[in-house]
Nucleic acid binder design. Structure first.
Length: 291
RNA sequence: GGAGCCGUAGCCAAGCGGUAAGGCAUAGGUCUGCAACACCUUGAUCGCCGGUUCAAAUCCGGCCGGCUCCU
């Protein structure tokens, strides 16, 4: 019977290396669950796992999307489950790793997602208060904050597309049996790693990579850390120094959000303390605990 | 040596006599669809000393520190 291991960890925690070494040990294959790693043409800024780093381990759902291609969490759920089912059928162990927790949830839990559930109406003529009132009428138990316009709009679109007033119900039943591991790294160490990683990205040519893509005007690039800040620099809105500091800061903030979200969403997590001087120990710990 | 301006939380900054706006950062948190998103919560007694006043970050004097100009 194949095992499913979910390797959680903040950006910069070292998931990639651990996942590949673990895959070798478990004879497993890897499904990527990081939204930005799915895109082609961005590599330095997203720390895309290179072919060399993969070291012969089969990876799925990585480096396959065009930057202007639409791909929703619904698509991911579908594609991911197909792959997962095939691997299970063939008795192959699988490791799921990546920073997009919501994608992992949608993949492994009973999330009812509907195809083509697009945001058709932005409700630009309504104030936050008016939007909130509309949402309250449809579902008085919703916990969406008045100021969270993006979520309010999404709720209303969702309702009109599906007729469902979804509020976080029935989403915590797992469909697949999986073990969750969280690479626990002390805040100060993680932040140092993040800061030096950004410096390394710059030294490895991130500016050139970003500039090339900047000229092609892909909209997603204004949402991806590393590219959105450099875009501001290319537009002469900030200096290079400011852009670099912003990249570091935004990455740290993202890591912080990941931490709260992982801990909040996945209740059966096993925490693994990471010692960077001895990563083999971590791999061994996970390996033994997964048997 | 003289003249002027300035000194408010880690940073930026409002207030100009009635008991410290706001923004950013930090920290904590929320979360079913563009999720590396969006949102919530979070702090000081105002350079120091003295004076005036019922009351001073706000007025006066001295000192310290910074900036600009003049000789």
């Amino acid at each position: 019977m194949s095992k499913i291991i979910v390797l959680l960890g903040q950006t910069g925690s070292g998931k990639t290396e651990i996942s590949i070494k673990l895959a070798k040990k478990l004879n497993a294959q890897i499904i990527n669950s990081d939204k930005v790693q799915m895109y082609k043409d961005v590599s330095i800024g997203v720390s895309k796992t290179t072919y060399k780093e993969m070291d012969g381990i089969k990876h799925y759902l990585i480096d396959f999307l065009d930057l202007d291609q639409e791909y929703s969490i619904y698509d991911y759920q579908n594609d991911g489950r197909k792959i997962l089912n095939t691997l299970i059928k063939n008795n192959i162990n699988v490791i799921i790793t990546g920073g997009s927790a919501l994608y992992i949830k949608a993949l492994l839990y009973n999330y009812d997602l509907i195809a083509n559930n697009k945001t058709l109406c932005m409700y630009e003529d309504l104030s936050n208060e008016e939007l909130k009132r509309k949402v309250d009428i449809i579902n008085s138990n919703n916990l969406i904050h008045v100021n969270n316009r993006k979520r309010l709009v999404r709720f209303l679109n969702n309702y009109h597309n599906t007729g469902k007033a979804i509020i976080n119900e029935n989403n915590s039943t797992p469909i697949y049996e999986a073990d969750f591991y969280y690479l626990d790294v002390p805040r100060s160490i993680l932040y140092n790693r993040i800061n030096t990683r950004v410096d390394n990205m710059i030294n490895s040519g991130l500016i050139d990579e970003a500039f090339l893509l900047y000229n092609k005007n892909y909209k997603v690039l204004d949402t991806i850390i590393g590219y959105k800040e450099l875009n501001k620099y290319f537009k002469n809105e900030i200096s290079l120094q400011e852009a670099i500091l912003l990249i570091k800061q935004n990455t740290r903030k993202y890591a912080k959000r990941q931490e709260t979200f992982f801990k909040h969403q996945f209740t059966n997590i096993k925490y693994i303390t990471l010692d960077y001087n001895d990563t083999n120990k971590v791999i061994n710990d996970i390996y033994l605990s997964s048997l």
